[in-house]
Structure formats: C-alpha cells, structure tokens
Design a protein around this nucleic acid. Structure first.
Lengths: 236, 236, 236, 236
DNA sequence: AGATAAGCGAGACGGTACGTCACGTCTTTCA
DNA sequence: TGAAAGACGTGACGTACCGTCTCGCTTATCT
C-alpha cells in the first residue's frame, strides 16, 4: 500500500484506522469517497490533460464535496500521482529469461502497452505536470520510476554476472539511454513508438555495452569467427 | 526564417511584405508589437512556469492590447513556441571534426547549455504543454527538432561514409537513443544531466553502432590489434 | 418584501430562510454582500448613466467578486431595478384629503421630487434599458408601477364614490393620461417639469373627467351657480 | 433637406457641393456610402436596441470602412437620429377637419401606426439612447418632435378660434398630456396602445379643455339642455 | 499632364468590459 | 466532527467593440 510523499495527512486512516490502533473521535474518513475520487480522477485524466483536469470536475464526478478533496490532497498533482500509483502498483516486472536483451525488451514491450493504452495519457500528464510542480515529479519518480528501476538494476547485474555486459557499466546511464529512447518518442511523437523500435534500441544499446566487454570474454565467443574472418580477408 | 505551423496569419508579412510581393489592404502588422510580445514572453517565462504564464501579463508587459496577442497566436502554446523558436534560430549546429563521437557530443554539450540556462524552462514548458496540445507539439517538432535533426542526419551520414558507423544504421533510432537519454534526465530529473553523462551515452550508443560494422571494415582498422590480442590471449 | 421577477434565485433565502422554513444545505447567501451591492449600484448610478454603469465597477466598489453579482442577477438591468425597487419601497403613497385633485397632485409632486433627485437618473435608466430588455421593463412595472397604481385605483374609486368623477371612468386611461404627461416631459425634456405643470395637467384631466359627470350629480352641487348664471346671462 | 444638429461636418457637401458653390480639392464625399450607412443603420436598429447597435456592424453591413462612419458622425446617437430623421421627413401631418378631436385623433392614429411598425423600435431606441446622450435627445426633439408640434399648435389654435377650446389653454400642457398618454403606454407597455385608447384620451383631455370654456359660450350651445335638466331635476 | 489633396475600403492597433470558469476558502446542516 | 453542498473573493480567460491609426487606391481640383 503505497503512501504519497505529497499527502499531508496520508492515506493512513483509511476506513478509520489510526497507526496506533486507536480510533479518533468524530466521523471517520469515508473510504468510499476516497475510492470514488481516485476513480473519477483516472477517468477524467483519460479525456483531458493534467492542466485540463479540475478538482471541481473530480469532486462533481465523484459526488463528493470539493472540500473533501482539498482536505486530503493539497493540490491536483498530489491527487493525480496518488491515483495513478494506486492503479499501477503491481505491473511492469522484469522477467528472468537468461538474456538481458530478452528481459529488458520484454519489460519494455509491457511498458509500451501501458503507454499506448488510456493510461499512457496519465503518464504524459504526470510528466507534463511535473515540469511545473517539483513535488509531482518527485512523487512520480519515487512511486513509479524507482521501484521499477530497482528491478532493472537486478536484471542488469545478472547480465553482468553472466558476462553479457561489462562489469564497469554504469547502470543508470544504460537504463536512461534505453528508456530515454522510449520516453522521447512517447513525448515528442515524431516517429512511431513500436515493438520493432524497442528491439532496435535494445540491440543498439545493449550491443554497444557488450561491445565494450573485455576482449578476453568476447573472444571466447567469437574467436573462431574472427580467425576465419581474418583468413578470409587475407585471402582476398 | 522559419514559419510556425501554429500561426494563423504567419510571421510572413512582417514589415508589410507578402510572399508574392503584393501588399494586402489594411494597416500592416506592427513589427514592433510582435517583437515586444516575444521579448515579454521570454522574459516572463523565466520567472514563472508555462502554466503560470498568462497572456494578460504578456500583453501588459509588452504594452500591447490583449486582442493583438490573440489576433496572431491562437493560444499560449503557439506564442511560446514561436517566441522560443525565434530566439533559437541560429544555434545548435553540428561541427564537422572528422569524428562522429566528437561532432555529436559537442553539439549535445551546447544543447546541455541551453537546457541548463533559463531557456531550459521553456523547452520543458513546450514539451509539457505539447502533451495537451498536439499543435504545440507539432510546432516544437517542426520549428525546433527537425531543423537540428536534418543536420544530425548529415553528420551521421558523413560518419557512415568514413566507415565509423554501419551503413544500415537507422539514423532516427540512433538519434532518438542519443537524445532520448538527455531528454529523460532533463524531464524526470532523477540523475544529474552532466557533460560526463553525455560522453557516456555517446560512447555507449555510437560504440554500439560501430560494433555492428561489417568485420571487413572494422578489420581494416584494427586487424593488427585483433591479431595481437589473439596472440596475447593465446599466450596466456 | 418585494420579489424580483428577474431574479433567478430570488431575494428569498436572504439570511438563509427558505419559503418552507427549511434550510438548504450549503453556505447561505451573504446578506451583507447583497446590501453592499445594492448600495454601490445606487451610488454609482448617480454618477454615470445606465450604459456607463459596469458590473465590474459595482463589484469592485462593493468589495465583492464579480461572480457573486452574476450569481444572483442575470444582467445589469435586473440588478438596477432590484436596487431601485428596494430603495423605493415605502414611498409615493397617496394621501386621502377628500379631493381627488389634491390626492393625485400631492402624490405627483412627491414623484416629481424623486425624478428631480439623483434617483431620477435611475428611473430614466430603467425605462431606457427596458426598451431593450423586456424582463427589465416587466420588473419595473411589477415592482414599481403596479404597487402605486393599486393605490391610485383606490384613490380614484373614492373620488367616484364621492361624486367627483364619473362612475364609468376608465381608471387606467385616466392614470396613463395623468402620469404620461409627467413621463413625457421627464423623458423628452422639451419643457420644464414643474409643480405648476402638474397642477395644470390635473386640472385638465380631472376636470375633463368630472365634466362628464351625469348632470344629476353635478347639479346637486352647482345648481345655484347655474341658475344664477342663466339669470345673469339672460339679463344681458 | 434636414440638417443634423449633431453633425460636425454636416450633410452639406453631399456630392461635393460646398455652401459657397466652390468645390474643394480632393475626392468628394461618397453619396452612395452615406445612403448605404443610413440604410444599414435603420435595418439593424429594427433588430436590436440602440445599445445593441454597433458602429462596427453598421460599417460591415454597409460595406464601408469604420473610419468613414466616424468621419461624418461623431457618435452612434448622431448617426441614428440622422438616419431616422431622414426616413421620417414627410409624415404625421395634421388634417383640418373642422374638429379638434378629429384632427388630433387622426394624426395620433397615424403616429400609432408608426409606433406599431418596425420604426417604432427606432423611436424607442432614440428615447432610450437619449436618456444617456443629451445630444441625441436634443436631436430627437428638434428634428422630430418640434416640426410636428408646430403643426399641432396650429391645429389647436384653429380650435380655439372656432370656440372648441378655451383661449387661455396652455398648448404645450395639452399636447404633452395627449401625447404623453401615448408615449407612456408605448414605453412601459403595461396596457394595450390601441385606437380606442386614443379616442378615450382625446375625449378626456379635449373634453376637459372644452369643459373650461366660459359659461357664456357653453351655454349658447347647451342652455336648452340645462334648463330642461333643471326642470327634470326639479320635477323629482 | 502632372501634382496635390481628400475620401475611400480595409484592417491592425491599444484599450475596456464583458460574462464564464475554476481556484481554494468559508459557512452551514446533516449524519 | 467528517462530509455534502454551495456561496464567497479572486483573477485569468477569450471575445466584442471602442475610437484611432496607417496603408494603397481612387477621384477630384489646381497648376
């Protein structure tokens, strides 16, 4: 159960529980209202942008008082990132196929599916909104990006262990180059963001990384090829 | 001279000239007002976000009627992209050093300078705004991205001719991977966007590309290396 | 407590009360804001014309949001007529002196006082605005004209009972002729609108009406006069 | 050929003539534009109010530059009154039937026709606009009201000579009472403004006036009636 | 015939107010 | 005492006209 870095009062207290198990006096927070607000937020975000989304509309759509929204989320960004994170909690895991290329490109393809679905608009909205609102961007990083990246680190480290990637590879540089390629086409939309694009990017980057493997390792694989190539070349 | 796809009436006509040399009836557009509007737009954008920028404030700062702004730009995005493009018209050219790596990483470093300057806010604002407004995004592509990309194509083709890159390289994939890495860190801000990062990315991607060179070419350069490497390896 | 036909939500609800005694949910209408708006409207109308009066200025003067004005009054006319009617609620009553001529001319003189005061501008503004806006005119009739007319009917009926006016007199024709004379000079301003004018009009119209009394009644009063007149005439 | 009291430059000069017969250099005023502007003004005034009429719309409808309108008329009121006066120049004359009642009521009926036609809106617009703009009202008086009133004076004086009305009758009071009754119903619209209303008003006012004739005159007519009435009364 | 002058259409200009919308806060009643 | 309802002051929105201006063109008179 994620907790928004943005929330002033926190999701805790859902259905009336408090950390210490004691119930506070007064009417408990309405769990139903909270869920309706999330639902409406996500629903409306698919139709409009972050800027176009209004708290007024969310409250109306959720049959909830505007003040109820403001009571629990300090601003639109907090609400949106909270709603998005709660909707994307158990997705985008990396497989372990024994090949970096496969592990990464499979996960990227999943990601592609999300970006091409209605939830893609929400990702775009979060990144767009984040350019204005640092807290929103921070929340996106911490609640969406980092958890996936932790998994990605593991995947890359496995590949290094297997000798597929050089041990001095800067994992963040590699991941940002891989995913940056996706984000760029997603955000700028100048070229199609397809599965074949993903394969090309992975080949380019992971191939580039493996190209920097110590010759010793590489040669173990390809010595025969090279020798015969030299022979062929020499024969010309 | 660049022409916005967003402008209803176009920048052409500045100081009264029309493409065909004929003048339209009516009072000609005020070149002074146009420049004052651009100036104020860029000035105010450095203090506030894209969302925070108001046409009202731009008009007031430029001593111009609000209607004059709306007459020429259909919305805030169109104005901002126009102002930005006109301010970045003769920048970010690619050098021709004889090395792809050098050519690209030098231009990228220039770009980095812009992103880290006050104008970086504007790029972020445009991409954020573009997630809402397809025309704004299209304008960003056509007035900012494409002109640079044309030059980048030439740079990469030179490298292919020189044998630094494989002839079947997909130029767009390569460029999106290179620049995507920059945009990602710029937009998500999870890691520092430094010059050393740029070098790492270039090495990774361009190295990866060159790793796929046909052996024949590669060997012309590195045959001696390989042979001695094999020898060394064999000697172990 | 008059109620504007123009008001969307009605003056009712002032201080939170609803016709059925039940209170609606939500924050009740601010009685203070309502009064401040009326005050500012009347104040500003004395300085400028109906056309010159702007809702913007009223809101600013009353320290009230523009939207608050628009929430309760659909347009400037509705606001003005409401403000005027609320300021003239207990004025212009007819006395009962035992003489129609006196009753009417006294009330007309009061009316003259209003027309010559700063509030005269408002009456003019309402009638002018009403030529455009049927609802405004209807509101003027129902909130200002009709209540006075009801009293005028009573005054005329008393006179008929007393035998001062003929029983078949069309009350509306008489009143429109009397007051039309005032409105005409007030609106067209071609001649002074003075007390002596009022006396002349009353004499002309009420005299004209009484001239049509059945001889029987008239003679009860003036038989002696007539007889002596005939005698005098005959003696000539 | 009327001349607007409002016009700065006057209608003179139409088709290039100047008072002294000399022609000025430069392009002469376009008579066609002037007529088109009048036509559009009257046409648009039938659809909207004085306030709703815009110079912009007049110019557009007349296919004329806005500046051309402003060149010849200082404001909307000047234009409207000029257009109206030029359209109502030879109307509303008083007949001479030998009976005041007939003369007046016949002309009033003609007036009623105008008020009920589309031009009625223009009269209303002029009076409404005049409440704001004193010059507009003055122009209405001088170009519309006064010419008719001159004729009305003659009609009433004829009646006085004939002995239908008392010689000390204040003509303006009488006329304002008569016509005020019409204007009132026309402007306030609380009762139908019909021909029978006109007859009632004329009877009331003119009857009232004649009621004040010196007994000598009246008796010449009605002595027999009175005497027999006295007899009848006495016989009761 | 050419120069000079003014009216013409078109339409851009700096302004002002419009009526709407959403903001985030508040005040009230009900559960 | 939380939540709904909804009024509040605020301020930007994009529009419509205002009355002025600057164009190129046209139509006249005056050298």
């Amino acid at each position: 159960m994620g907790q928004s870095v943005l929330q002033v009062r926190g999701i805790l207290g859902v259905s009336g529980d408090r950390p210490n198990g004691k119930r506070l006096p007064g009417r408990p927070r309405s769990e139903q209202a909270r869920r309706a607000i999330f639902r409406s937020t996500l629903k409306l975000l698919q139709r409009s942008s972050f800027t176009g989304l209004t708290i007024e509309a969310v409250a109306a759509d959720a049959n909830v008082g505007k003040a109820t929204v403001y009571r629990w989320w300090p601003n639109k960004g907090a609400l949106v990132v909270d709603a998005f994170a709660s909707s994307a909690e158990n997705e985008l895991h990396f497989p372990n196929t024994g090949s970096v290329y496969r592990d990464i490109s499979l996960q990227m393809t999943q990601f592609l599916g999300i970006l091409h679905s209605q939830r893609g608009r929400i990702v775009a909205a979060l990144l767009a909104g984040g350019q204005t609102d640092p807290e929103l961007l921070a929340a996106f990083r911490e609640r969406f990006l980092l958890p996936r990246r932790e998994e990605a680190y593991k995947t890359l480290r496995r590949a290094i262990k297997r000798g597929e990637l050089p041990p001095d590879l800067d994992l963040d540089v590699a991941l940002d180059t891989l995913y940056g390629a996706i984000y760029m086409r997603f955000l700028i939309q100048h070229r199609p963001l397809s599965e074949s694009y993903i394969r090309q990017v992975c080949r380019l980057v992971l191939g580039g990384a493996s190209a920097r493997l110590p010759l010793a390792r590489k040669l173990r694989k390809s010595r025969a090829d090279v020798i015969s190539a030299i022979a062929a070349e020499a024969a010309r």
